[in-house]
Nucleic acid binder design. Sequence first.
RNA 1: GCGAGGGUGGCGGAACUGGCAGACGCGCCAGACUUAGGAUCUGGUGGGUAAUUCCAUGGGGGUUCAACUCCCCCCCCUCGCACCA
Length: 835
Amino acid sequence: MKYEPAEIEKKWQRFWEENKTFLTKPQGKKSYILEMFPYTSAQIHMGHVRNYTIGDVIARQKMMAGYSLLHPIGYDSFGMPAENAAIKQKIHPADWTYRNAETIRRQLKLLGLSYDWNREVITCAPDYYRWNQYFFLKLFEKGLAYRKKSIANWCHSCKTILANEQVIDGKCWRCSAEVTQKELEQWFFRITAYAEELLDSSGLSGWPERVKIMQANWIGKSIGVEIYFPVPDLNRVLSVFTTRPDTIFGATYVVLSPDHPLVSEITAISKNKSEIESFLERSRKAKDPEEMAKEGVFTGIKARNPVNNEEIPLFLANYVLAGYGTGAIMAVPAHDSRDFEFAKVCDLPIREVILPLPTGERVGVGGGGGGALQAAYEEPGTLVNSGDFSGLASEEAKEKISAWMEQTGIGKRTLHYRLRDWCISRQRYWGTPIPIIYCEKCGVVPVPESELPIILPRDVAITGTGGSPLDIASFVNCTCPRCKEKGRRETDTMDTFVDSSWYFLRYASGDWKDKPFDPKEVNFWMPVDQYIGGIEHAILHLLYSRFFVKTLRDLDLVNFNEPFTNLLCQGMVIKDGAKMSKSKGNVVDPEEMIKKYGADTVRLFILFAAPPEMDLEWSDHGMEGCWRFLSRVWNLAENLAPSPALLPAGERMEILKKSPATLRRKSLGEGDKEFLRWQHQTIKNVTEDAVNRFQFNTAIARLMEFSNFLSAAATDKNNISGANLAEGLKTIALLLAPFCPHFSEELWEKLAGQPSVFSQKWPEYNPEFLIETEHEIIIQVNGKVRGRLKITAGISEKEVKSLACSDSKVAALLAGKEIKKIIVVPDKLVNIVIT
RNA sequence: GCGAGGGUGGCGGAACUGGCAGACGCGCCAGACUUAGGAUCUGGUGGGUAAUUCCAUGGGGGUUCAACUCCCCCCCCUCGCACCA
């Protein structure tokens, strides 16, 4: 019988449904394997297939290794695509979503993934999102959820806030209308309160280094000093932030951002009023900050450098960010490239205060008035022209100057982060309603917990053309929970990243009804032992989830600090050198591939073509190769006649149809020994590659080699007994089971006579069988391979040397030369060094 | 600009602590079986050379008996951040 995946896979999936007990063997050792849940778009794509296949391999291997396994799946289902589908296709987002979830569920089942389907969650169900509302209230109580005005991307035509990703070249992705910045009252989660803790990566030892670095950069901690510059004209003190207090004596001017709060006061008294106003106008209009040239304007006002009372000019310039630090800087053009650039543009003086070399050598001799300095010198060095601090090294100077500033009240040591609070307000329909009521008398009032969930109303006009879709009387009008007078509901919904920040907790607690999760179960299963997802979540989702877990810990709801102990970021699936996408027309449909080759071949190829972290180039030819491998193993088993379980030792067999071979069974000769060595070496290699290193590609290569060995042995090249051949195929079934579950189960049943390969223990190798009695060693002369030598294991180094030198080819090379030294690497090589 | 990761046959990729460069697979070539094969099986396959052998892991130096692997300089590609003071 030929290998026909369709039947096998159908049969197996039925079997799996009926035998879920494999998933829930109650044992001491737990393993929680999780892949990022899919967004409920119309169908899955190859990226999903890769993600879930990797997770499934890990999960199934854990299962066989005796772990109690949690391997859940669900649907991330709130969000814009559902609304857009509603607008385009005139279908309700809920209907669209549930229909898609069904398709996805069916497709995931086709892949033969080992999910515990009883734990499914869908985030758009009131049963789920009510807990978003619950957490919101908890955060609100603690002051971690708050409302404030903030600037966001606003589309005039759609009348809604857009996410940054939805602004393409400054235009709305749907209507192509110009996007502008608009100040809106919005809800935030105070993630900055956890900045320091999120920066601590000590609980992330199992994360890729680059993800930790990306998060650290995102949080962007800077240690520095706030320095107070008196501005007598304004009768005010201007506060600037710097990380380089060691350069303070080189400050030749100060700069405010165009959005600094003092700008209006400055404009009011400035003699350059019209110049300032035209500059402000230009910078307000400027769209692309990346391509903006440095531009600024002198205010006509002076500030006093507090360290030396020197009067320096005060500028407004577009290169200073309003949202970072104090929105104002001291400019040290000699030692900061941006200040240097601006000083050149405006022809401002440049004063060096740090020298690069102890000898006093200069990068470019500057002096006053711009001088000949070629570029800013930003490295540490020795201070000059710096009052009492001259002669100190930068690091020491930073310390001393900071301390002195604190003593004299000139400045204060401080910290700044790039991380901003998380804006969770969306003027969108398809999301979790924010459980807040506005009352004229009581102000902002949280909905009492007992009134949750605030159900997202179904009958709402979603046109995408005007205002918040929830802004309808039946939803908005309500009674204030406090004074029982008329109230008005918040019409914004939550960012969908809120949904995905805690779904892994919900999975872990089965069907808990009156709480978001059962802390006992969650504390047992969590943290996730292995999380698998794309790198695109490196900052957003992964940072939000970490934040959420920390807040829940502080609410005494969980007892751990980090959600994901180990993280694997798989690479993209690409074709013709580009990521698969509809617009590029290079999409390969997973379901079509499954139909053509079977799920196991698809899984095998995707695991074999590249290591998980690397990008994977799709190849139809590569698929064929994996198909051939499975077919070969299948045929080998098929031809093991009549029934391997009953095969008497020494039975003569016909192995391959096309090239029949008669096998001679030696009683316990070299054939058996070699077989055992191959078998156990394969177990060792596959386990090390797949389990310890997640190098599935090489693990599969080892299985292919073993199967090639068995094939060759069976065609009378080597000798192998029928019993050994059956043993070998059983080993393949066991080791291949995580990769190709359907195929392996069928193969196992064929050979063992009963199910299931997944009730078997993951095989272990016996080191005794790996011991070789003979080694082939390489003979090198001056580092070049000149011969090879078979030696018996355990012979002395002296013997090896003399054997190597007497090799005929080697001897010829040695003739008339002096041997300087001989290096012996036991059981591997001999290197003879001659003159 | 800063940060991270890469650069190995015609292709995807192996080579874990320095020890036979190219495992495994694809593709290609030859053969077998065939009316036929884009099915299957067998063998070959980095490049040069008639040949002993020589040249090859982005380029150039170095350390070493021995370097894809370690050190220094340079080039190129991908991703992330991008005036964060």
